[in-house]
Design a protein around this nucleic acid. Structure first.
Lengths: 161, 161
DNA sequence: CTCGAGATTCTTGACGTCGAGACAGATCGT
DNA sequence: ACGATCTGTCTCGACGTCAAGAATCTCGAG
């Protein structure tokens, strides 16, 4: 069974038979899979009326637990965006009523972003939808392969720490 | 040995012990790896003075072989961007002298984008640098694991066709 | 031959992100 | 206390992408 990366590799081999294309087999697939997963994620979230970037922020707050509060700086670290982007995102999430901005009681420069009950409901629903969509994608592979795949990917991540 | 996704899963488990988080182990790693690979790619290309988006376009032309000509429409399909983006990219590549625009002899609506000798040199050098950087990342894993990883990723891609 | 549907490329405006800098407040040494 | 430096957040301009539409050309049906 051939996929689009097999064709890509074949095309390169026609032109550059001198090169070892093994890395392409792995890394090109990871890149393309990530792209498609983004799309799958987007449609899973769309049913729950939220967008991927919204989920990223809300999920970080949800995972924090307790009172579901994090500073913008912490959110920046969790979601890997810049400060300007986070200001914009928090603005829009606050406008939708999913988060609220509170003054940080311990640092007058600071702000805390808190998940509202509506935000919590939204993110919980979206996360369950995401998990079930993703489980569906894994359903062809035996559980043993899940573990192996996760282990191999973990090994690669170590290398790219 | 623990990675950042293990922490992510652990945080979710603290908050939502009721959910089966297996999919996160796989898909979250794919997403994060893709992000880091983009960075690695970028630095590998930077040594050769080209950017990732430039490589994407030049590589498509290079793989085409023959006289290294493709239509903008074909380039759009290969690189998964929209037409406005491709017009912009071809403009900038032409300004750098890596490609040139020719009228399509068989269709007066059409245009052909052709790789120049400078463009070919650039893309060949960049590709070799990319492969060697990527090989380095795989060097910890035994070749048998490369095959297995590629096979598992291929199986996932079938599912997302 | 002509007409209209479809194809191909480019143009345009809107949008989200980035990155540099502004600003206020905290922190630490003296 | 005081000043210098650091930290945390926000502001703003530039940039690349997207999506929709404009302009041009092709090709088959009648």
């Amino acid at each position: 069974m051939q996929d689009e990366v097999d064709e890509l590799v074949e095309a390169w081999r026609r032109e550059r038979a001198d090169l070892d294309l093994t890395p392409v087999e792995v890394f090109s697939r990871i890149g393309r899979l990530a792209r498609r997963l983004d799309l799958a994620r987007r449609t899973a979230f769309a049913d729950h009326g939220i967008e991927s970037w919204e989920f990223d922020v809300l999920a970080a707050l949800r995972r924090a637990g307790g009172d579901y509060e994090l500073s913008p700086g912490r959110l920046i670290k969790e979601t890997l965006v810049t400060s300007g982007t986070m200001t914009n995102r928090v603005d829009r999430l606050a406008a939708r009523g999913f988060v609220e901005r509170l003054p940080d009681p311990n640092d007058r420069r600071g702000v805390l972003v808190r998940l509202t009950p509506e935000g919590r409901e939204a993110v919980d629903g979206a996360f369950e939808a995401l998990l079930s969509a993703e489980r569906e994608l894994l359903s062809d592979l035996p559980p043993k392969d899940h573990k192996q795949l996760a282990a191999l990917l973990r090994a690669l991540m170590q290398r790219l720490a």
